[in-house]
Design a protein around this nucleic acid. Sequence first.
DNA 1: GATTGTGAAGTAGTTCACAGCT
DNA 2: AGCTGTGAACTACTTCACAATC
Lengths: 215, 215
Amino acid sequence: MTKVDKIPEPTIKRLAFYSRPLEDLLESGPPVISSEKLADSCGVHPAQVRKDLAYFGEFGVRGVGYDVRDLLREIKRILATDKPVYLCIVGVGNLGTSLIENENFKKRGYRFKAAFDSDPEKQGEKLACGLIIEPNHRIREVCREKEIEIGVIATPPRGAQRVCDLLLDAGVKGILNFAPMQVRTTGDCRVENVDFTVKLENLAYHLHRLDESEG
Amino acid sequence: MTKVDKIPEPTIKRLAFYSRPLEDLLESGPPVISSEKLADSCGVHPAQVRKDLAYFGEFGVRGVGYDVRDLLREIKRILATDKPVYLCIVGVGNLGTSLIENENFKKRGYRFKAAFDSDPEKQGEKLACGLIIEPNHRIREVCREKEIEIGVIATPPRGAQRVCDLLLDAGVKGILNFAPMQVRTTGDCRVENVDFTVKLENLAYHLHRLDESEG
DNA sequence: GATTGTGAAGTAGTTCACAGCT
DNA sequence: AGCTGTGAACTACTTCACAATC
């Protein structure tokens, strides 16, 4: 079915992108969409959409377009979001709490199965979602027991590497890191960083550039 | 000083990256760092560090390395984060609140000067930081009055485009969008998207791939 | 006639490898 | 001797353009 050899990293990112408008269309919209329309909704080039999808098979019909329902199902299958994924969070501050409550996580089948914090004050506290905050030294045991695949780091930067090491030891296969620093992992655990300030710095740079080019 | 013509987008992102370990080093570390060491801390290639920096001038000393203090100052100047940047937030839910309280924003000089929410229940409420939540229809007036340059969207996806339009109308030059959808802007406003679920989907994809390559 | 799927062409970003400086 | 700065080589990604299909 696939001519998969090596899929470009940006392609994976865009697949997730494509799924957003497709979900909307599924509820209320025509059952078929062209690469041009889909590209438009996502701010990419139509040929890009076609090429991205073609890495994984022939999902479209020439002269017609892509069936919205089928395409969405395929994308979810590819991204392995067709079944629930178990997460844990480390660091239950403002950010951590907002992630646990996050509707988009819930909607897409990401389930927080455990929450940890190094602050003894917080340990034992029961969250709105029903989880009880556990101490960090329980990470290994709990993650293994609950078959947690992905750990989310929402601690201050200082503690991030230690938490990362604990998660690695617990056998998680992926880490979503919100701390503004690079954490080091072994080969069989992948890290994605979400650093808001990098994005802001990017904006600040371009704001400044715009000023310059006007002057 | 610069041979600036067109700076690659990834270079800007990495500059923000480089500044993290430099800040740490400034407090407690040798006053000089080599491209190799810096690259190591950030998980990039040493030649990449040198090339990135060289776009903006000759900051290093051959045979020696880069002066930590000077380099950090230069990077901050380039990213225009050497002076405070004024932000507003729209959508004061869990996520919005955690962003307003975020230490890393504060530390880097990003200042929230206004907060808006479409929920009448919340309007008038006073936040921990002292800001009072205002209704969305005040965005234009308040942003202009307070000279807000960047708007942060932390609403559910449904309302995001409307909020974006209000921010454009208010004359903001940059938007940091946390809603999981593409918002449309005009040419003189830049958008950066922070979509956590895209990152998770990325992880999920690769988790799955690892399984496959083992089998 | 419309729209996909794809090789080929084009563009952007990364790494090499070494001259040049301290 | 050590490390930067940089043209050249390489690699990755995007877009074009058109044959294939409905």
